[in-house]
């Protein structure tokens, strides 16, 4: 059997909000080490990779590896009913046919039980090589979301360029052009809610990406005050948000190249 209890149920809510518009159905792969999920969007341009380590749950039991296939839109509708301080318990039988989600209020005065039918999803799992990226930008997640939103007014592609001085996001379209430059900056009073912008630069990078997908990724903004954007020329970028201190959600996006 599989059973896992997450004290901060709102993490699961935020994860579902982050992926439900990008991915329709996905397998939650459960093993004794935790839960992982890997899924491509319907056009196979981007990839989501979620990791929730077993030690981040206050109870975690997985007798044998199982894949729980779920429709993420249906799951997000159920998980939206999680109160912010609720704990969430996920349970599944050994073949993952039936999944139970239980929400408990902090004082134990309310318990709700939901069951979702598991889906048989045939998805290939891709091997993602561990890579040293040429440029790694860490910045406030809300700022990244805002930049994606603001540049979408101008065009559908953003050119992200890193240099020693900072990072620029530029877009152009029929209306004109827009460019937003961020310099490296310190965090305000080491306040985790006001992180600064930092750039680890091995080599400068300049690549084009579809704003539509980056905007989907920014639905994960409520998960964390900071986001990390890792890039190398000619390979997909990675946009990473931490999931509490138990894991991460990573979004990979292939660069756009000239026709």
């Amino acid at each position: 059997m599989f059973e896992a209890r997450l004290p901060q149920g709102d993490l699961l809510k935020k994860i579902l909000e982050a992926v439900k518009d990008l991915v329709t159905d996905a397998n939650f792969d459960c093993s004794s080490t935790g839960i992982s999920l890997q899924a491509m969007d319907s056009s196979h341009v981007s990839l989501v990779s979620l990791l929730m380590r077993a030690d981040g749950f206050d109870h975690f039991r997985c007798d044998r590896n199982i894949s729980i296939g779920l429709n993420l839109l249906a799951m997000s509708k159920v998980v939206r009913c999680v109160g912010n301080n609720d704990a969430v318990t996920m349970k599944a039988d050994d073949n993952g046919d039936l999944v139970t989600l239980m929400f408990e209020s902090q004082d134990g005065s309310k318990v709700s039980d939901w069951q979702l039918r598991g889906l048989d999803i045939d998805s290939e799992r891709l091997g993602i090589p561990s890579t040293d990226y040429s440029s790694v930008v860490t910045m406030p997640s809300a700022e990244f979301a805002r930049i994606c939103r603001d540049l979408s007014v101008i065009g559908d592609t953003v050119v992200i360029t890193t240099t020693k001085e900072g990072v620029t996001f530029a877009s152009k379209g029929e209306l004109g052009t827009g460019k937003i430059a961020l310099r490296q900056s310190a965090a305000i009073d080491d306040d985790a809610d006001s992180p600064g912008v930092s750039i680890e630069l091995q080599e400068p990078v300049s690549q084009s990406f579809a704003l539509r997908y980056l905007s989907f990724f920014t639905k994960a903004t409520p998960l964390a005050p900071t986001v990390t954007i890792s890039m190398s020329n000619g390979v997909p970028l990675v946009v990473e948000y931490p999931v509490g201190d138990m894991g991460h959600i990573r979004f990979y996006l292939a660069p756009k190249v000239e026709d």
Binding site: M40, L126, G127, Y252, P255, V257
Partner: peptide, 12 residues
């Protein structure tokens, strides 16, 4: 032009 993400990441 946009390459598929799978073309960058092979089978595990």
């Amino acid at each position: 032009m946009q390459r598929s993400i799978a073309s960058f990441f092979g089978a595990p």
